[in-house]
Design a binder for these strands. Structure first.
Lengths: 187, 187
DNA sequence: AGTGTAGGCCAACACCCGTTGACTTCGGAA
DNA sequence: TTCCGAAGTCAACGGGTGTTGGCCTACACT
């Protein structure tokens, strides 16, 4: 026994996360993941059953939004943007979801659920009306996911070159408006 | 000869566009495209050489930005958002690029080039300083691509439910700010 | 009517994929 | 020391993929 079962399982999971994050679901092969984890492909099946379940385990994910009820109302946008940037950079989870969610319905559903579920309470706390929460959550998601797309996936040079503080300075007013701004007339 | 060469080539291209748009590069197979075009897979190779060149032909794309120099300065954001929505819905080209650009470097480069090249002149016309153009273009791209991602790819229910006019009402101020707003202090 | 050719089909190739099951090796308990 | 079970390897399977080259076939000309 070279390693304990837990150790190799963790090694496989780490390799899978990296490969899914950079290659997406289709291009990330079990064989390549196995090589990265220095193990035979059949062990991946032994520990995770099949590729789908391996992906599900690798894409486990939460936004980990902090409690913002104590944050001054006019700074909740900046705080949220700052937190999102940290969350993107903490691990590969969001990159995995973005890279695969674009062509994989299961991953897409995961993203939808995560953003809807974790953003809604905050928004309801900020604006009274719960009916506005889904729309405002979608707007926040569009800007945050869009920035992540440009910066970490497509790697737009100017988006990559911007410092975290610059991104915060530009994007915070947008998020603040989507969260607490009054509903504009749709003409 | 059932069809002219031009006709079948066009049929293949149409089928390829649809399949690339819904499935992405890897999952869209030559065989499936051939079936859709009602032709033998080998003909796809005859006309386009290989899958890469077929994709390049299918992903031919331009933003078709209108001339906004005559638009009142304070309405350029709304006009641009309106145009982008129309552009998304006109054909599959942008969906192809988004679905594939996330895992395919060639497509990613295409997106970067298109946004940088076609947005920069407008921005330089609006703000004097050409050095700010790349950053502002990236910000605009982040919001427009993000909204497209949520609305047409991930299909967030609230983003799908919003009318075009609602999207325009919410997003226009953001784009207007990225285009003409003064550079914020990065703290 | 005969024929050249453009348009199309068919079968196969080499390769890679996820997945399976039987076999081997090692380490610790008896 | 023996032995059993856990950890790991190996070779193969069935299927799908991009790609190739030879063959057919129907039309527009002479």
């Amino acid at each position: 026994m070279r390693r304990s079962a837990e150790a190799t399982k963790a090694a496989i999971l780490a390799a899978a996360r990296e490969r899914f994050a950079t290659d997406g679901y289709e291009k990330a092969t079990i064989r390549a993941i196995a090589i990265d984890a220095d193990i035979d492909p059949s062990m991946v099946m032994r520990y995770f059953g099949n590729k789908d379940r391996l992906f599900a385990a690798a894409a486990e994910f939460s936004l980990d939004l902090p409690d913002l009820t104590a944050t001054p109302r006019d700074q909740v946008g900046a705080t949220l943007v700052r937190h999102f940037l940290a969350r993107w950079q903490a691990d590969d989870a969001l990159q995995i979801l973005l890279r695969t969610g674009v062509t994989n319905e299961t991953a897409a559903e995961r993203i939808r659920d995560v953003f809807a579920a974790q953003l809604a309470p905050l928004i309801i706390h900020l604006v009274g009306d719960p009916r506005q929460a889904p729309t405002r959550a979608a707007l926040v998601a569009s800007q945050m996911l869009g920035m992540a797309l440009c910066r970490y996936i497509l790697r737009f040079p100017p988006a990559v070159a911007m410092s975290d503080d610059e991104v915060i300075a530009w994007v915070s007013p947008t998020i603040q408006n989507y969260l607490t701004g009054e509903h504009p007339d749709a003409h």
